[in-house]
């Protein structure tokens, strides 16, 4: 089974987000980039599926050369090879098109359900549409048996079991594997990752349908009004009269 895992490179979750002085882009000064947390669950699941069924795990990423450490980390965790499409990932349709071009040769195409930077949550569904494939979005459980796929997804107030067949697109999250099962690179992994293939391909001239104009930060809140412990009645009154929240 050939498995493709689409990886995005995002600011570390502890990052304070700031923008360049003209507010047109993220200020990357001092920001550590990591594998998108949702993609980590998917990558670990892909490696477990390879252990069960044989095959290969390829990671793919659309981004500039300075994102390569993220791909090397994925190789160190256990992917067999990596593909980087050499382009700035600015628009989700552009990224999906690039990834779909690569994905058409794979049996199982996996990605995190959204990236924590631009939060489009759209690339997996777009890949599925471009390639005319089925999709399990927000996937929390996955088993493969021959070409049969059984999956689980979160729905409003519950969960749903699904069946489908390969090839398929899976947009995954926690539950695919548990947090405690996430694979992390060991010394041997880090060493071998250096020599695993990382192929760089040029982008097709795909169209960009959206563009970022500017960024802004949420308004600061006024300072916190403290109520004495024991005086919960006052809190209830404030929430009713002042905040109009109850």
């Amino acid at each position: 089974m050939k498995i493709l895992v689409c990886i995005s490179s995002v600011p570390d979750t502890t990052s304070k987000i700031n923008f360049t002085s003209d507010k047109s882009a993220l200020d990357t000064n001092g920001i550590q980039f990591i594998i998108n947390p949702y993609d980590e669950f998917v990558l670990t699941k892909a490696i477990k599926l390879r252990e069960q069924h044989g095959g290969t795990v390829t990671v793919a990423h659309v981004g500039p050369a300075n994102n390569e450490p993220t791909l090397r980390k994925a190789l160190a965790i256990g992917a067999d090879d990596a593909i980087r499409v050499d382009a700035e990932a600015t628009d989700s349709f552009f990224v999906a098109n690039e990834l779909a071009t690569i994905a058409k040769d794979f049996d199982l195409i996996m990605a995190g359900r959204e990236s924590i930077d631009y939060n489009g949550g759209s690339v997996p569904a777009m890949i599925a549409e471009i390639l005319d494939l089925g999709l399990i979005n927000g996937c929390t459980g996955l088993e493969i048996n021959g070409s049969n796929v059984s999956g689980e997804r979160e729905i409003e107030g519950g969960k749903e079991s699904l069946s489908a067949s390969l090839p398929i697109v899976i947009a995954g999250q926690k539950g695919l594997v548990e947090e405690s099962d996430l694979l992390i690179p060991n010394m041997r992994g880090i060493m071998t990752a250096r020599t695993k293939p990382l192929n760089v391909v040029t982008a097709q001239a795909n169209e960009e349908r959206t563009v970022s104009i500017s960024f802004e930060k949420p308004a600061e809140r006024a300072s916190c009004k403290l109520v004495e412990s024991g005086n919960e009645a006052e809190l209830v009154a404030l929430l009713h009269n002042e905040a109009k929240a109850i």
Binding site: Y118, N119, R209, T210
Partner: peptide, 20 residues
Amino acid sequence: FTVKKKAFSGKAFENAQCNN
């Protein structure tokens, strides 16, 4: 067409423009 959206998981907003 230009519209404000959430970005960076609630840490910021982005003004995005549609070219189509």
